[in-house]
Amino acid sequence: MDKHFTVKQIGVICADEGGFRIEIAPEYRDSLVGLDGFFYINILWWFSGCDNEQDRSVLSETKPYTKGPDTLGTFATRSPQRPNPIALSCAYVTYIDVSHGIVGLAYIDANDQSPVLDMKPYTPSLDRVEEPEVPAWCRHWPNNVETSGEFDWESEFNF
């Protein structure tokens, strides 16, 4: 079952005084053509700060959420400590500059210089669940990304 895959970094996340954006490597900039018009994108990126043997061996978290169970398996969390430190974020696109390879974002929950692996347009027909069901301990979380920014996330996490 142990297979190895080659993953190529297509760009980098910038989170600095200039705001949030993705800078796409020159050889991938043509991939941005046609992305304009999609106001949200799904971004696959690498939790590069957790790419070490210790963080990759974490399979459970002790009380990661203040209102959650005492122990959760890694796959039941959004923790960066996981067998493969791959992250998925849905972000609002503020602008696209194809010639310079820049995708502006309103916000992304990634550190500056995090490697970007891929981007896909958010499409409601494939990405939206009308009535998602979640465990009772997190049912009070916002129902959508638009209201998520106003939520007090700091009081929800223990990490």
Rank of each mutant, 00 (worst) to 15 (best):
R82N: 01
Y65Q: 08
N52K: 05
D55R: 10
I96W: 10
D16R: 10
G49V: 02
G18M: 05
A110C: 07
K120R: 15
D152F: 04
S57T: 08
D30L: 11
V103H: 07
G37Q: 04
T77A: 12
K3C: 10
Y65F: 12
N52R: 06
T71M: 15
V12T: 13
F75S: 07
P115F: 01
R29M: 08
Q81G: 03
G19Q: 12
E61M: 15
W153E: 02
E130I: 02
V93D: 13
P124L: 03
S79D: 05
A87T: 06
P80Y: 12
W45A: 07
V33C: 09
N84Q: 14
K3Y: 11
E53L: 08
R21A: 11
N158A: 02
E17H: 10
E156S: 04
D109C: 01
I22W: 05
A136V: 12
P132V: 03
Y122E: 02
L88S: 15
G11Q: 05
P69G: 11
A106K: 08
G18Q: 12
S31P: 00
I102W: 00
D127H: 11
I13M: 09
I10W: 08
V93Q: 13
E154P: 02
Q9W: 06
G34W: 08
G104E: 04
H4M: 14
P26C: 03
D51M: 07
V98L: 11
V12D: 05
F151L: 06
R56V: 02
Y40W: 10
P83W: 10
F157I: 06
C50Y: 14
L105A: 13
D16K: 10
V134E: 06
C138E: 01
Y92Q: 14
M119L: 07
G19E: 11
F157D: 00
T94Q: 14
P85G: 11
G37I: 04
S57V: 06
F151Y: 13
E130A: 13
L72N: 07
G149P: 00
P115H: 02
L105Q: 14
D30Y: 12
Q113P: 01
P26W: 00
V33T: 13
F39W: 01
E156A: 04
V12G: 04
K63R: 15
W137M: 08
T74V: 15
G11R: 05
D30C: 10
S99E: 14
E53D: 09
K67F: 05
A106D: 01
P142R: 02
P121M: 05
A91H: 10
E27R: 09
D152E: 08
S31I: 00
A136E: 15
G68H: 11
H4V: 15
K8S: 11
R21W: 09
E154R: 13
A106P: 00
E23R: 12
V12N: 05
D55W: 09
I41R: 00
H140F: 03
I10A: 08
G49A: 06
